[in-house]
């Protein structure tokens, strides 16, 4: 279980998170929604230990990651798979090498096994043809999918996806969602997904949390969020302009 308590962060005096509280049960898929610039990526970066909060805690299975450093933090990160909003592919490596990288460097798998897993991972995101291409030679949506393949290939226990499907066509959005569901039913990982895919994302979420004004203003199962009486939530999921 991941427990976030009173997470607070300001950049140069500008508050972004003002005390975020959230519980992410082990094995569930939790989706974070909220306005662009609302602090979703900043929130995610606290959970993976890239940013340090001004106040508050992130507790992953009894361990407070905001207090961990160096090797102890790496121990926790061993279990993570992360997809950054921009993909963050290594641009000096081909797509196949990108996916192979964590297998080789983290798990130290033999060559044949690595090749087999990389091929399977790329096939899952329908990118068999892009294996030998460099990130600069493929489209933005293809890059996103390589990043997803790279995060899932090591079968992490906890996955953090920052807008994994933004910029993909509707068919691919559903393909990725189905892939996440399918892998989830097989490996039962804990997932935290930041997404703007409303309402599609509600179909795979166990619970949805809305981040607004630096706080989680509403959380619950998708149906409850959709039926929410909170006008801010309603306006957001209906996409009403201000």
């Amino acid at each position: 279980m991941i427990k976030v308590e009173g997470l607070t962060k300001a950049f140069r005096g500008q508050p972004v998170l003002r005390g975020v509280n959230l519980e992410i049960p082990t094995g569930s898929i939790t989706v974070i929604i909220g306005r662009s610039g609302g602090g979703k990526s900043v929130f995610l970066k606290h959970l993976i230990g890239l940013l340090r909060p001004d106040a508050g805690h992130v507790i992953v299975d009894e361990q407070d990651v905001t207090a961990l450093h160096g090797r102890a933090l790496d121990q926790v990160r061993q279990r993570y798979g992360v997809v950054f909003q921009g993909g963050a592919l290594f641009d000096s490596l081909t797509c196949a090498e990108n996916v192979a990288f964590p297998l080789r460097e983290k798990l130290g798998l033999p060559r044949a096994e690595t090749v087999r897993r990389v091929d399977a991972a790329l096939a899952q995101v329908s990118l068999e043809g892009a294996a030998g291409k460099y990130p600069a030679e493929i489209s933005g949506g293809m890059r996103k999918r390589v990043a997803i393949a790279r995060a899932l290939v090591i079968e992490p226990q906890i996955i953090f996806f920052d807008e994994p499907t933004t910029g993909l066509d509707p068919i691919l959005v559903n393909t990725i969602h189905r892939l996440i569901l399918e892998l989830h039913s097989r490996h039962h990982f804990t997932a935290l997904i930041v997404s703007h895919e409303i309402p599609e994302i509600f179909e795979i979420a166990d619970s949805v949390a809305m981040l607004a004004d630096g706080r989680i203003i509403e959380t619950g199962p998708p149906a409850a969020i959709q039926a929410s009486r909170n006008p801010v939530v309603q306006k957001f999921i209906r996409g009403e302009p201000e």
């Binding site: 993976i48 230990g49 890239l50 790496d74 121990q75 990160r77 061993q78 993570y80 992360v82 950054f84 921009g86 963050a88 592919l89 290594f90 641009d91 990288f101 964590p102 460097e105 983290k106």
Partner: peptide, 17 residues
């Protein structure tokens, strides 16, 4: 520098590498 701003260095960090 480009690896830093495109989060490639962060990607290594969160892979615990």
């Amino acid at each position: 520098g480009i690896m830093r701003i495109t989060e490639q260095i962060d990607a290594l960090t969160v892979m615990a590498l």
